[in-house]
Design a protein around this nucleic acid. Structure first.
Lengths: 152, 152
DNA sequence: TCGCTTGTTTTGATTGTGTCAAAACAACTT
DNA sequence: AAGTTGTTTTGACACAATCAAAACAAGCGA
């Protein structure tokens, strides 16, 4: 594209370029689909992107999500029983709290300090690279009996 | 079935019955497919069961795995990027170490004590039920450059 | 031991999530 | 402005898993 973007778009474009990726409408639109704290699956992203760029295919969205994740601009998580989810908060090794009733995902800071998170008692000789922690429970809304059909 | 089982089969049959489930050949065979410490996917289980009971369908295996998991006789885990895996070690809240090269899964005792595992710093008002920890890294065999195509 | 009832398994179709390959296309470079 | 390279479209496909209905077997009571 050649149109002049907003401030936010310009900043994002710079990050995409810095990652060695070409700047395209789809990539900006995919990133713009996220609001802070949201965890979206490919379909939700496609729906939002398509409302701005109707010609965008689902496969393009998969491609962009993959490229941005690999570049470190998005983080991909795969909770059991759900399609893959993406979030914009990256690089801080945070964890997730998933509601077993409505599937809403919340971010949680690393629990007992990064060291403990990365140090199991027996390593079996593994060279450990990352630790992933997922908490399962019932969110306040579902606990209170409301909103048991929320989506994200 | 009416044949007399082995000691192990009898013990297992009793557990299945105690869980309120009917005792069937498939269920015994599925459980028997596991050796201690193994993590098998539905396909691997089906292959082993079929070598003993060739008429067993894949759907029967899915059904049995689901029933035994719900009864607490098997535990189901779903590491990102793999089909669901099942293991016979249940009830001890242990965690997993997954090799990013060969996908082998190892069990790990709970890291810093159960309390910490279940206590994120901010709970967002959640009623937390379980904590799931997955470590990703490279296993000794893959580190040494051998066996990079192992399965489980 | 014989049947009845209920739960299990088979069979076959179907869904959902995600991948692959080739052609059309657009961003960046010179 | 034209070329090169990387991106997106299009359409087919793979794979894990689920659903529904009919065939069947386990466990119960007579």
């Amino acid at each position: 594209m050649t149109s002049t973007g907003t401030d936010a778009s310009e900043r994002l474009a710079a990050r995409v370029r810095a990652a060695g990726l070409k700047v395209t409408d789809s990539r900006i639109a995919v990133f713009d689909a996220f609001r802070p704290g949201e965890h979206l699956d490919a379909d939700a992203v496609h729906a939002r992107v398509a409302s701005v760029l109707p010609s965008t295919s689902r496969q393009a969205v998969y491609g962009v999500l993959g490229a941005l994740s690999e570049a470190g601009l998005l983080r991909k998580i795969e909770p059991a029983g759900s399609p893959a989810l993406y979030e914009t908060r990256t690089g801080d090794n945070h964890h997730h709290l998933v509601c077993t009733t409505c599937s809403t995902v919340f971010d949680v800071a690393c629990i007992v300090g990064e060291a403990a998170c990365l140090t199991p008692s027996e390593t079996h000789g593994f060279r450990i690279e990352t630790a992933e922690v997922t908490f399962w429970g019932v969110c306040p809304d579902c606990s209170a009996g409301r909103a048991s059909t929320a989506l994200s």
